[in-house]
Amino acid sequence: MSSSFAQIPAERRALVTNHHVFGYLAQRFGFRVIGAVIPGGTTLASPSAADLKELADAIRTANVPAIFADSSQPDRLVQALASESGVQVEVIELFTESLTEPGQGAADYLEMMQANTERITRGSADEPILER
């Protein structure tokens, strides 16, 4: 993880996720957490229109190229946020809440972390495209 994330320039180490689950990773590897689509510590919360606008503004300001969404959660809100952000933002699925069956990307903890590292590294390397 260290060598992969070291390839990302410091100014590109920005995370937007569908809920707050990567604080530990952000702190350890020098990422800024720009925000989460679902506010608070529970996946049962619902963001308001003002919450989504505020996060969309933060995504534009920080030039975030990707939003990382949990593969086990519906991504309807994440897709809406990506649409509202004013930049072409890729939505990339990460494994966060459970492992997968063998052969599906996260059969054990190490495979999950390797997949997430590759996806975060790739997503952080992309340049955002301003739409408006």
Rank of each mutant, 00 (worst) to 15 (best):
F29P: 03
I129D: 08
Q7A: 15
R132W: 05
P128D: 04
V78N: 04
E93M: 04
S71V: 05
A50Y: 07
G103A: 05
D51R: 13
A6Y: 07
V37W: 11
R132C: 01
E127M: 11
D126K: 12
F22E: 00
P74L: 06
S2M: 10
A36Q: 07
E84Q: 09
A58C: 05
Y109D: 11
G41H: 13
L52A: 06
T100I: 15
L81T: 05
A62G: 03
I129S: 03
G105H: 06
E11S: 15
Q73L: 11
E127K: 15
R119M: 02
A50L: 08
M112R: 10
A50G: 11
V87L: 15
G103E: 04
A10H: 03
F5R: 06
L55N: 02
G41A: 10
E101H: 13
S3R: 11
R12Q: 15
I38Y: 05
A107D: 14
E84I: 01
E127Q: 14
K53R: 15
H19K: 00
G103N: 03
L52W: 01
V37Y: 09
R119G: 00
E118R: 12
I59Q: 09
H20S: 10
V64D: 00
F29S: 03
L110Q: 13
V64G: 00
T100R: 11
V64W: 00
E54P: 05
L25V: 05
G86A: 03
E93D: 10
G35Y: 09
G103K: 07
L110C: 02
A66S: 12
S72N: 08
S85L: 04
T17K: 01
Y24T: 06
T17L: 04
G40Y: 09
V89E: 01
D70I: 03
T42R: 02
R76S: 12
Y24K: 13
R13E: 01
T61G: 12
S124W: 00
G103W: 02
F95Q: 02
Q79E: 12
I34S: 06
H20F: 14
G40I: 04
A49Q: 11
F29N: 05
S48M: 15
E93C: 01
V37K: 11
P9T: 05
S72E: 11
S4R: 14
Q79F: 04
K53N: 14
D126E: 10
L55P: 07
G40N: 09
S72I: 09
A69K: 05
A62Q: 15
I8C: 12
P74S: 14
A6E: 13
A58M: 07
S124N: 05
A69D: 07
R119Q: 07
G123W: 01
L52E: 02
T43I: 15
A56F: 06
R132L: 08
Y109K: 12
E11A: 15
D70N: 15
R12A: 11
M113G: 00
G40Q: 09
Q88D: 10
L44F: 04
F5Y: 14
I34A: 13
H20P: 00
I92L: 04
A106I: 10
R60M: 06
A10F: 03
F95G: 00
K53M: 14
P102Y: 08
H19E: 05
V89L: 09
